[in-house]
Amino acid sequence: MFETPITVVGTIVTNPERRWVGDQELFKFRVASNSRRRTAEGTWEPGNSLYATVNCWGRLVTGVGAGLGKGDAVIVVGNVYTSEYEDRDGNRRSSLEIRATSVGPDLARTIARIEKRRHPEPAADAAPAEGEVSAEGHDRADDDPDDAIDADPSELDDEAIPLSA
């Protein structure tokens, strides 16, 4: 309740840290978002900067941990909050943190190859669960519907509409 959503476009500026907190895995890194502004002479000068710690939990840990690192251009979506703590000298400090719900490469500043996470196929002798299709070569109901894009056109149903239509 009363969470503050945020989207940050920036660069990962620290080596990501992967660790366990209790029984949950955490993937954590810092992101910097730097602005620039055009001067009256038409040149660019640095503007303000935003630095935030990004915390990735759950299924996000696997994808972010396998694909992103220091120096990568990213887009982070999540909820922002302030973490307060005392430093070594006893001074009260705070830092901006984002609990990420989505993290991905910024395709305006990098090139990425997408590898979809595939679900393991059920055993051949197992009966299909409700909502699954047991026809050979067809995706299960919980698979991504966009997988049809990767399919061989000869395997598609006769009712399929070509992309040029």
Rank of each mutant, 00 (worst) to 15 (best):
M1G: 13
F2C: 10
E3G: 14
G10W: 05
T11K: 11
I12T: 02
I12H: 05
V13S: 12
P16G: 10
E17M: 09
R19M: 03
W20A: 11
G22Q: 05
D23R: 15
E25F: 04
E25V: 11
F27T: 02
F27I: 05
F29Y: 13
R30K: 15
R30M: 10
R37E: 12
R38N: 10
R38F: 08
E41V: 10
G42S: 10
E45K: 11
G47F: 06
N48V: 14
S49T: 15
A52M: 08
T53K: 09
C56E: 02
L60T: 06
L60C: 09
L60M: 11
V61I: 14
V64C: 11
V64D: 03
L68P: 03
G69F: 09
K70D: 07
K70Q: 15
D72F: 08
V74T: 02
I75V: 15
V76H: 00
V77L: 10
V77K: 13
V80A: 12
V80H: 07
T82L: 14
T82P: 00
S83E: 13
E84F: 01
E86T: 07
D87C: 00
G90W: 00
N91K: 09
R92W: 07
R92L: 08
S94A: 12
S94D: 06
L96K: 08
L96D: 03
E97H: 10
I98V: 14
I98N: 03
T101L: 12
V103F: 02
V103K: 04
G104Q: 04
D106H: 00
A108E: 04
R109D: 11
R109Q: 11
I114L: 14
I114F: 13
E115I: 14
R117G: 13
R117S: 13
R118P: 07
H119T: 13
E121T: 12
E121L: 15
A127G: 06
A129F: 09
E130C: 05
E132Q: 04
S134Y: 06
H138I: 11
H138W: 05
D139M: 02
A141M: 04
A141T: 02
D142N: 07
D143F: 04
P145D: 02
D146H: 03
A151Q: 07
A151T: 08
D152T: 02
P153G: 05
E155T: 15
D157K: 02
D157V: 07
A160T: 12
A160N: 06
L163S: 10
S164F: 12
